[in-house]
Computed example of a mutant assay.
Amino acid sequence: MDVRKTVEPPRPGAAEPALTTGALARRLGVSPTTLRSWDRRYGIGPAARTDGRHRRWTPEDVTTLETMCRLTASGVPPAEAARAARERAYPAAQRRPPKTPHAPGGPAGLPAPAADGTPSPGDARQEGRGLARAAVRLDAVALDERLETALARHGLVVAWQQVMAPTLHAVGRKWASSGDRYVEVEHLLSWHVSTALRRHTRHPMAAAGATGAGPVLLACVPGEQHTLPLEALNAALGRLDVPARMFGAAVPAEALLAAVRRLGPVAVVLWAQARSTASLPLAEHVTAMEWGVKGARARPLMLLGGPGWSGRPARGMLRPASLSEALDILAVTYRAAPPAEPS
C-alpha cells in the first residue's frame, strides 16, 4: 500500500507528516473505532484537526497512542493507561485534560470506578462474596447480573483476575473441604462464568495492517477439563485484535499436533491444572515443530499455563503468572511475527 496517499504533507516545523486515523490504526494494529473511542472517553486524541474536523495525528500523538497500546496489552485498565500515556507525553504545565462527555458514574447507572478502573481489595472481595452467595443460592439471574456488572465496571481482564477467578477458587476450596458437597454450586458458577466470557468474546477480522502471522492456539493438555482460564484468555485476545483458535478441554495429542501443522500458530498455550495431566514431552514436541521454507523456518512460542506445570523445567518455554502477563507476551509476539507458512 502507498502510504503517501494516507498522510498529509509535512507542516512547517513538523519532523514527520500527520497521519489519518486509518493510517494510524494500521500502524498500531488496532481498529479506527478503538482510536475514536479512546479519544472520546479518555482524551487520547489528536492535537489538531483539519477544517473538515478530520483527525490528524502528529508524531507526539502517535507516541502517546503507542504507550496506550502497550499498557492496555499488558492488562492495564484503559482509564489508567490513558492517564499514564498522557502524563508521559506532556509536561504537567501543558498537559491536556481528559474529555468528560458523560456525567459522573459508570455505564447503566453503575457507580463510577476508581480512577485506574481497578477495584480496591475490599471492593473485589465484596463483589466476589456476592457472586459466591448467588451461586450457593443457585440463583442464575443474580449470577448473570453480578458477572455483567463486574465486566462493565472493571473490564474483562480485571474482572477475571480480581473477581471471577478468586471466587471460583474459593468455591472450589469449599467443595474440596466439605466432603463433595457444593458440587452443583461449582458447576453452576463455572457455567455462568463461561457464558459471560463467551458473550464478551469477539473474533477479530483480518483487518488492514494485520501481520499475516498465524493465530494463537489455545488448548488443554490431554485429560485436562479445566477450560475457564483459556476462555478468559481467548476473550481478552479478541479485544486486542489478536486471532486465536480455542480447542478447549482434553485435546488429544495427535489432534494438537495436527492443528499446529495446519495453522502454523505464532504461539501455543497449553493449560494443565494438575501435575498428573501436565505432559512436558508433549510441550517439548510442539515447541520443536517447524514450518516454512528452508532458511526461514518458524516455530511456535510455547506458553505453559496452570499450576500443573509448577516445578517442571521449561527450557525454551514461558510460564506467565497471570492473564495480564500472558496477554502482554502474546500481543507483542503476534505483532512482531512474520507471515505464517504452515506445512
Results as ranks from 00 to 15, higher is better:
residue 60 E to R: 14
residue 45 G to I: 10
residue 55 R to G: 08
residue 27 R to H: 07
residue 71 L to N: 15
residue 69 C to W: 12
residue 73 A to T: 11
residue 50 T to M: 10
residue 44 I to A: 10
residue 72 T to S: 07
residue 48 A to L: 09
residue 64 T to E: 15
residue 24 L to F: 00
residue 24 L to P: 02
residue 31 S to A: 14
residue 33 T to Y: 13
residue 50 T to D: 11
residue 59 P to S: 07
residue 27 R to N: 06
residue 30 V to Y: 06
residue 43 G to M: 08
residue 68 M to W: 07
residue 52 G to W: 02
residue 30 V to P: 02
residue 42 Y to N: 03
residue 36 R to A: 09
residue 65 L to G: 01
residue 42 Y to I: 07
residue 27 R to V: 09
residue 62 V to H: 07
residue 54 H to G: 02
residue 46 P to R: 13
residue 58 T to N: 10
residue 35 L to H: 07
residue 53 R to E: 07
residue 42 Y to R: 11
residue 43 G to A: 14
residue 72 T to P: 04
residue 24 L to C: 00
residue 37 S to E: 11
residue 30 V to H: 06
residue 71 L to W: 14
residue 72 T to G: 04
residue 40 R to Y: 05
residue 61 D to I: 09
residue 43 G to R: 12
residue 37 S to N: 09
residue 65 L to I: 10
residue 34 T to R: 11
residue 70 R to G: 05
residue 23 A to W: 00
residue 48 A to G: 06
residue 47 A to R: 13
residue 32 P to F: 12
residue 32 P to E: 12
residue 57 W to D: 06
residue 59 P to A: 14
residue 32 P to K: 14
residue 31 S to H: 08
residue 73 A to D: 12
residue 48 A to V: 09
residue 68 M to F: 10
residue 46 P to W: 07
residue 29 G to E: 08
residue 43 G to P: 12
residue 57 W to H: 02
residue 66 E to C: 08
residue 60 E to Q: 12
residue 56 R to Q: 04
residue 54 H to D: 06
residue 29 G to Y: 00
residue 63 T to R: 11
residue 49 R to P: 03
